[in-house]
């Protein structure tokens, strides 16, 4: 009978595994192979070019601009989202209405978020400039997405806005599993709300926070969809919002250099992997066992 069960399992898995192999694993492997060629997207026999594509990355100003901007996003976005989400989760303990509201952006697709925020930022009839004018702050009005010094921050604000809700819900759920008696005991011992939050809540929900760091770190290395739809150029003005994913897309589909774009993909793959591992290491803490 046991034998039959394994046969059944294998039979049930073969279709999804094959699909996964053909549509997920094989493109990955091919990208690694193409990264060492000069494939132009239509040629049947690309030439092998060794590590040329990878050494070119280091003097490609567009790729370096993307690297720089993704780096800044990596520093800002995860930290901002986690701090905001923790604050909102702690501040709205027990009131579910707010969580539902915070979660709304999560229900919209990235494309819709990008289009909506483009309307918010648009200079002459946009919500943001309109609000500033209504408050009498006319001198603060800007062409938000057309200012090289502001554009990336505007994109990051949208990233933060759109992801904070998910982490509020995640952290709230974790906080609810913190036993009340521990909190009460701490309060009786004279700990203020800040101390309780820092010394009790955070350590007890740290695993959720760690997951947040990694997911947000990976998201900060992307940003393609928002930048592609929202920004001037896209990627502008003057490459101030260029991200690596956009550079890859342009290199492949506009410049017709699929081999070089694959090399970018491989570089981004290893970069993301290293960042994820690094974040896991840095955020590692003793696990608190709740008896």
């Amino acid at each position: 009978m046991r034998h039959g069960k394994y046969r059944f399992l294998a039979g049930a898995l073969i279709v999804p595994l094959t699909l996964y192999g053909v549509f997920v694993l094989s493109p990955y492997l091919q990208a690694f192979q193409l990264a060492f060629t000069n494939w132009n997207g239509v040629d049947s026999a690309p030439e092998f070019t060794g590590f040329d594509n990878f050494s070119k990355l280091w003097d490609d100003p567009l790729f370096l601009a993307g690297l720089r901007n993704n780096g800044l996003m990596l520093l800002v976005v995860p930290l901002a989202v986690i701090v905001l989400a923790l604050a909102l989760a702690a501040g709205t303990r027990g009131t579910r209405v707010y969580r539902v509201v915070y979660f709304f952006p999560q229900l919209l697709s990235v494309a819709i978020i990008a289009v909506l925020w483009q309307f918010v930022y648009t200079p002459n009839s946009g919500l943001l400039n309109g609000a500033l004018a209504a408050l009498g702050l006319d001198s603060w009005r800007q062409s938000w997405l057309a200012e090289p010094n502001l554009a990336l921050w505007c994109v990051m604000a949208v990233m933060i806005w759109s992801s904070v809700g998910f982490y509020v819900v995640l952290f709230s759920a974790a906080m609810e599993s913190v036993p009340d008696d521990i909190m009460e005991a701490a309060a009786i011992d004279g700990a203020g709300p800040m101390t309780v939050f820092r010394r009790i809540t955070i350590p007890l929900i740290w695993e959720s926070v760690q997951v947040g760091w990694i997911y947000l770190g990976i998201a900060a290395l992307d940003g393609f969809a928002l930048v592609q739809i929202m920004t001037v150029g896209p990627g502008g003005p003057d490459n101030s919002t260029e991200v690596m994913g956009l550079g890859l897309y342009r290199t492949a589909f506009t410049f017709g250099k699929f081999g070089y774009a694959s090399a970018m993909g491989v570089a981004i793959f290893f970069l993301t992997l290293s960042i994820a591992v690094l974040l896991l290491r840095v955020t590692k803490r003793e696990r608190v066992e709740l008896a």
């Binding site: 039979g11 279709v15 094989s26 060629t37 040629d43």
Partner: peptide, 26 residues
Amino acid sequence: TRRSALAGVAAVAASTGLAACATAGG
């Protein structure tokens, strides 16, 4: 039968796997 269907799927998958290389010439 279910078995022959699975075998068929596997065969198709294996052949597309081979032919699906992005740069396979015709």
